[in-house]
């Protein structure tokens, strides 16, 4: 039965093509055809369609277990709570701006919870808890991770799980140690005039545990230096210092929102 239908269809196509060819060779007056015949190229009605002008690749699904981190800017100052509820205890307030005047951001550490309103778990400067989704702007993703080893004095940047950068660093002294833990890059400072910080400085969510009265909150940066001769070693007040050539290379690879793990 299927074979019969196929043959019938093939026969129909053959007859159609024959009628079309017959029509082309006919001396009869042209017939106004409203649609398909009029739409094909006049020079060759049977010409195939042109090749598409774009090369569209095969769709690729997201990899299972892809290593991306999510961050979001704060729309306004917001309260971080201990649980996903407006009745949960307040852990602190995140300001909308950083001391450097940039938009404050939070690392989104998990999936949201919808309890009348949507809440998402975040990690921010000094605070880990839940924040109303309405307080955050659009999600951004990064596939980078910076690891700083304060014993080996190295900084290593991973992208999509592969090492793309490594350099020697200076870290905090025994009296002003670089804090260890999980943090993230929250801004980039450039074109300032301060040789001590080198050409570029990244602001992080890490805070010195000893320099609590430091101006602008005692946040730890990742920056260049005018004393490369001191690297690597325990030479800073907690910041992570790189040679200027290394911080410039890192700046080309490390976007804002990159998680920073300091051990």
């Amino acid at each position: 039965m299927i074979r019969g239908a196929a043959l019938a269809a093939l026969g129909g196509v053959t007859i159609g093509v024959a009628l079309l060819l017959l029509d082309r060779s006919s001396d009869s007056p042209p017939v106004t055809r409203p649609s398909l015949v009029a739409a094909v190229p006049a020079d060759d009605p049977l010409a195939p369609a042109p090749a598409p002008g774009l090369s569209i690749p095969a769709p690729r699904l997201l990899a299972n277990g892809e290593a991306v981190s999510v961050w979001a800017p704060l729309r306004a100052s917001a309260v971080v709570r201990a649980a996903p509820s407006s009745n949960a205890s307040a852990l602190g307030t995140l300001p909308a701006r950083t001391p450097e005047g940039t938009t404050n951001i939070a690392l989104v550490t998990g999936n949201g919870v919808d309890r009348q309103a949507l809440w998402v778990p975040v990690r921010a400067a000094g605070l880990t808890g839940w924040i109303s989704r309405a307080a955050l702007g659009g999600y951004q993703t990064v596939d980078t991770l910076l690891e700083v080893d304060t014993r080996a004095f190295t900084a290593t940047l991973h992208r999509a799980g592969r090492v793309v950068f490594s350099a020697p660093v200076g870290v905090g002294t025994v009296d002003a140690p670089t804090p260890t833990g999980d943090f993230f890059v929250r801004n980039v400072l450039t074109r300032y005039s301060s040789a001590a910080y080198g050409p570029i400085a990244f602001g992080t969510s890490a805070r010195s545990e000893t320099l609590t009265d430091w101006p602008a909150g005692g946040f730890v940066g990742i920056h260049g230096t005018d004393r490369p001769d001191l690297l690597p070693g325990r030479v800073s007040h907690g910041c992570i210092r790189l040679r200027n050539i290394d911080i410039l290379a890192l700046a080309r690879l490390m976007p804002v929102g990159t998680p920073v793990t300091i051990t």
Partner: peptide
């Protein structure tokens, strides 16, 4: 579609150094 957040600045750093 929203404005890109400001995450760059030219201010002199005041990190712990």
């Amino acid at each position: 579609i929203v404005r890109r957040p400001t995450t760059r600045s030219r201010r002199r750093p005041r990190f712990t150094g």
